[in-house]
Amino acid sequence: MVQVKKDEVRQAILEAAWQLFSQQTYQRTTLTHIARKVGISSANLYVYFDSKLDILYAVYEPWMRRRLLQIESDIASVRQPLDRVRQILRALWKEIPAEENGFLNNIMQALSTVEKGERYKRSLLEWMETRIGDMIHAALPAERRRSIDKARLARVMVMALDGYSIHRHISARGLADDKTVEMMARLLIGPNDRAKRPRSRTRKPAKRR
């Protein structure tokens, strides 16, 4: 007899998985832990998901999509190119790797231990690269857009995001510092940066006669 899937059970599985992955990481969480927290048998988990990796993607993907869309919304009102690029890099390399007790590192753990037969969803990575590439490319001055390969730039940004996620897992100080963000932002903007703060005009004291 085929079991009927229930939306409330699926949602309970996702909520339990999110809590366990956040608290004790992907590696230390088992399907038995998730099933026990929901109050169902481990066998029943397979009615809803194919594997632990499948469950992780189901909680990770909507979170990451919301987070990147939030960055887009946050920078929409930022006018200066340098400020926009700074804000994007700060979010990618400092904020996201640290959020939700370093939740991003769970996907790093999962991908490093993928077993034969488990599904790897490349579609999310492709969407992330496209979105990040578009954000940064749009923030650059026109002359820089023509000289920078958007797809390759996005790939480097995501690789750095993954790296900072791993470093943060090892040490709370393993995130990009402000100097790194500033250096990369200025490299991307290039030498013709017009987003510098205007110099304060100070009047020279009048010469006495």
Rank of each mutant, 00 (worst) to 15 (best):
1 M>Y: 11
2 V>E: 14
5 K>N: 00
9 V>M: 08
11 Q>C: 08
13 I>A: 00
19 Q>I: 05
19 Q>E: 07
22 S>K: 15
22 S>N: 13
22 S>F: 13
23 Q>V: 06
24 Q>P: 11
24 Q>I: 12
25 T>M: 13
30 T>W: 13
31 L>F: 03
31 L>Y: 12
33 H>P: 04
36 R>K: 11
39 G>L: 14
41 S>P: 02
45 L>T: 10
49 F>A: 12
52 K>G: 13
52 K>H: 05
54 D>C: 01
57 Y>W: 12
58 A>Q: 02
63 W>Q: 03
64 M>I: 11
66 R>Q: 15
67 R>D: 08
68 L>F: 08
71 I>H: 05
72 E>Q: 12
72 E>C: 12
79 R>P: 07
79 R>F: 10
80 Q>G: 05
80 Q>K: 10
81 P>V: 14
83 D>F: 07
84 R>Y: 03
86 R>Y: 11
90 R>M: 04
90 R>T: 09
91 A>F: 01
92 L>T: 04
93 W>K: 05
96 I>M: 06
101 N>R: 15
102 G>V: 11
114 V>I: 14
116 K>E: 02
121 K>M: 04
121 K>C: 06
123 S>C: 12
124 L>C: 01
126 E>Q: 14
127 W>E: 08
129 E>G: 03
132 I>N: 09
135 M>L: 14
139 A>L: 08
141 P>I: 08
148 I>H: 00
149 D>T: 05
151 A>F: 05
152 R>E: 12
155 R>L: 01
155 R>G: 06
158 V>G: 00
161 L>I: 00
167 H>F: 01
176 A>N: 03
179 K>Y: 00
180 T>V: 12
181 V>A: 10
186 R>H: 13
186 R>C: 11
187 L>V: 03
188 L>G: 07
189 I>S: 10
195 A>W: 06
196 K>F: 04
204 K>L: 00
205 P>F: 07
208 R>H: 09
208 R>V: 12
